[in-house]
Design a protein around this nucleic acid. Structure first.
Ligand SMILES: [Mn+2]
Ligand SMILES: [Mn+2]
Ligand SMILES: [Zn+2]
Ligand SMILES: [Zn+2]
Lengths: 148, 148
DNA sequence: ATCTGTAATGCGACTCAGTCGCAACACAAT
DNA sequence: ATTGTGTTGCGACTGAGTCGCATTACAGAT
């Protein structure tokens, strides 16, 4: 994750509260997992971790909560080049977007913040008259350790 | 598709032949479908169309051929924001990459070629010492007709 | 503190995309 | 024509994600 841990835990809960969205036990568990994640997690991993906080959490609740957070623009969904199966990965959405690079050999995920990326998005909005809600740039290739 | 139809039909078959890859009936049907497509197709659509050319084509052969073409760098795989289900879409890879914008309201897919995108990729390769094989920029938002 | 309408949950069954092992087959080189 | 190897169809399977429904729990009102 590209973010400093200066984040207040519980921030996601606050953002939902501000929008008048109900808070529940399972939701708190899931939000907490997402907030404290140190890497990109898929739905199954989120379920497993959430269950250590609230053993009753169900798989469908995880998916429903992920949908809610996506609709609210609070998380991003990633493919990470589908290096391991067909599932998706999730991460909190924070101020600046970043690019994901996945090494096709060692699987390492690298993140990168780029001013050029920001310009590109602005250019898109202007030239195509398109209002961007979410932008995902995912790259596959070979990292510095694996290139030949 | 952003490409002029100045393409020779059969080009994909040639590219595989050049690489010493065997040509078969089912493969010819699938390649022909991909080559003559006028929009992004998913595996099920490719199967259905391929069967009009060779009725025996099986679903697994479609997936195996798509994998082959991906490995050979001849097609790109897209999510198109998973607007309709969890499947993936495919298109021939041609010289210049392009960006895909999906309207979250009407579902329209817009393509855009950008010099800034090319610079961004170069910047990534340089700054991150990463060798890019495939780069996918997919954007979700509201098109000119749907923005409010 | 209790009541109450509505939103969220667990459960189980289901759909759908994609994969895999294997026996039969077909390509292309000799 | 023969042959080895790559490819195919088939069918069974996995795993991600969805859905309907009866039950539960939240939060605002009393
Ligand atoms: Mn995907
Ligand atoms: Mn395209
Ligand atoms: Zn690597
Ligand atoms: Zn639209």
């Amino acid at each position: 994750m590209p973010l400093p841990q200066t984040e207040i835990p519980g921030r996601l809960q606050m953002q939902l509260a501000e929008r008048g969205i109900r808070m529940t036990g399972p939701r708190r568990a899931i939000l907490s997992v997402i907030e404290t994640a140190t890497k990109h997690l898929d739905a199954t991993q989120i379920l497993r971790k959430a269950r250590t906080l609230d053993a009753s959490v169900d798989r469908s609740t995880v998916y429903r909560t992920l949908d809610l957070l996506k609709r609210q623009g609070l998380i991003d969904e990633l493919d990470l080049m589908h290096l391991n199966g067909e599932g998706h990965y999730y991460e909190r959405k924070l101020g600046r977007d970043h690019i994901h690079m996945a090494c096709l050999r060692c699987g390492k995920i690298t993140e990168f913040v780029s001013k050029t990326f920001e310009s590109l998005k602005k250019q898109l909005e202007r030239d195509c008259n398109f209002h961007i809600v979410v932008a995902r740039l995912e790259v596959g290739g070979y990292c510095s350790a694996c290139r030949h």
